[in-house]
Write a protein that binds this DNA or RNA. Structure first.
Lengths: 339, 339
DNA sequence: TTTTGGCACTCGCCCTGTCCGAGTGCCAGC
DNA sequence: GCTGGCACTCGGACAGGGCGAGTGCCAAAA
């Protein structure tokens, strides 16, 4: 168990390193922080901290930098979440209030997060499976070609074209549309498959039954599986900012960010409630082993419908970043609830 | 006027420099190319080329590298467009054929282009103003809240929610829907505003007229102005590849790429027909002054409905890049025409 | 007039050696 | 357990020297 002062030393090291981006030595520490002890004492504490694996020195005659384990301790026990300043809050409001549709909300959120944290922002679209259906529309594009449009309570709109095995009359179409809507409106999207599974049987014409089956199968499958998760990222230019000591590190990060699968997994690993901070090697993807990911769920009600977060260097301002992420998530939730 | 041989020397310099990424000297040139003359002669030619501004030397005792002007001459007069190999063509086919909707087409195109050229790819969504209307749908979300869904012949789907000044009955809605469709289906989107401007007058109820007016005004304005142009980019990780000599150059490029406005302007500056190559400082945006942009229009018919292109270092393989860009644009056009 | 081989020269790069100082670990004393 | 002192280490900055690629110029050859 580390003494109170040693924790204080660790906190000071983290803060200074985050600020200066340079290894911090015992003398500099005592000058910048009121620890009430001499550099020599700090050195002893540092030796202990290093032995325990919380800090390390890049070279023998250099200062110390925090390790992943050190950051972990810092985040868990030494740092709070820094609330945003009033101007910052106002900026969030102003910026998000102008959004006209879901794409716009997500887009603005990404830009906002990237700007506030000066890091890379990732925002997931509200998940379909956790949303409820607001409306289902069926359009006939051609005699044997339909388009299904699906609108969720979070404002998300998905559409898909389906080629039917046989022409499908306007009457049958209106019929199907009505029956579909009466069954699924207001229900959670995840429940839709079983809610509609008996629909084909209720049609008399064999041809219609076939069509309805095909349509439902294709659509549900496509919608649920392929377009389940979408996301938007932004602020990649910020990578260049902190990449100046790691010009070679930027490459794998950019590659990871291009793979939506990786990002979705990243967000998926986050806790369902509360904020999640994954530091350095705690991230499964090795391209991200020198980055930290701060993520949190957001939603229109009490329940999270999706997640958002930022990706930055392990050497980041955790309290500030966490504050920004949390604040943005809350406001986005409000916006969604209002729309 | 430069002699044939001097042009040949320039071509050799460009090719070698693109290949090796290092300044090329007279001796190396004669060794790698069958110019039929001695290094001394090449030196004389180089001196002339340098005087004319086509090449430059980074340091006194270094080889030469092409200037923007040199690349320009190379592209205009010395290089053809390299056709793709058969496997590459097949790859394009395979990759694009699996697309399920427009988002998917655009997304796949971006990835494909980025992979083929190993550079940053930019693909614009088919422009609304140049597309024709396939279908217009009006949905009632709430008594005084409508959603308009607009589907173009290129598969693009736009939707917007509108709050009406007064409740709008189902009958009136169906009426409006029918009239809207009869007027605009098959017409170019740009013509829609004037095609519908007299619609409100044909409604009897004053309330309905007000609603119709509001709806049309809001929708058309929003659709035309705000969502006119969308685009997708990909392959930013490729920046890290060629950024190793310019680690400081990657920053402004990333920033430029984040600004959709900049990119749209970039593509907008391209010629309406044929391929456009903008080299280095020819690009208006200064962050892109050491990159080249190769762009071309694509479309389902003879006419271009949007543009796509790649952004890479001025030191790029122009023939190959141009070949890839052109080929991809053609296939995307085909895909769009089929859907 | 153009091309060529020769030659002296320039200059950036790399390697080496040196110096400097921040930072450390240890220890004796308080 | 804290402090001041001290010897030590080692990375970074700087300077000098050798190397070699590449140039420009020139006189001779084609």
């Amino acid at each position: 168990m580390l003494s109170e002062r040693r924790l204080e030393v660790l906190r000071a090291i983290v803060q200074d390193y985050v600020g200066t981006e340079e290894p911090v030595g015992s003398k500099a520490l005592t000058e910048r922080h009121k620890l009430g002890v001499s550099p020599a004492t700090v050195r002893n504490d540092m030796a202990v901290l290093e032995e325990e694996g919380y800090i390390a020195q890049p070279h023998t005659s250099a200062g110390r930098i925090p390790t992943d384990k050190g950051y972990r301790l810092f985040v868990d026990r030494l740092a709070g979440v820094k609330p945003l300043s009033t101007p910052e809050r106002r900026a969030i409001h102003n910026f998000l209030d102008g959004a006209v549709d879901l794409d716009d909300v997500v887009g603005r959120t990404v830009r906002l997060l990237a700007q506030l944290t000066r890091q890379v922002a990732v925002v997931q679209y509200p998940s379909l499976t956790r949303s409820t259906v607001r409306h289902v529309e069926l359009l006939s594009l051609a005699p044997a070609r339909l388009m299904l449009v699906l609108i969720t309570d979070t404002g998300r709109v998905e559409q898909r074209v389906v080629d039917c095995p046989a022409p499908f009359g306007e009457t049958s179409l209106a019929d199907l549309r009505a029956r579909l809507n009466s069954r699924v409106v207001g229900r959670r999207f995840a429940d839709v498959p079983q809610l509609v599974q008996d629909l084909p049987e209720s049609f008399e014409e064999a041809e219609d039954r076939a069509t309805v089956t095909t349509v439902l199968a294709t659509l549900l499958e496509t919608l649920v599986e392929e377009h389940e998760e979408r996301l938007m990222i932004g602020g990649t230019a910020n990578l260049a900012r902190f990449g100046h000591d790691f010009p070679l590190m930027i490459r794998p990060v950019l590659e990871a960010l291009e793979e939506q699968v990786v990002l979705l997994k990243l967000l998926g690993e986050a806790k369902e409630s509360g904020m999640t901070v994954r530091i350095g090697h705690e991230n499964a993807h090795e391209g991200l082993s020198s980055t930290s990911v701060v993520s949190v769920g957001y939603g229109s009600g009490g329940e999270a419908v999706a997640k958002l977060g930022v990706v930055g260097p392990t050497r980041m301002d955790y309290p500030g970043t966490m504050g920004a992420v949390r604040a943005v998530a809350r406001y986005v939730g409000q916006i969604l609830a209002e729309s």
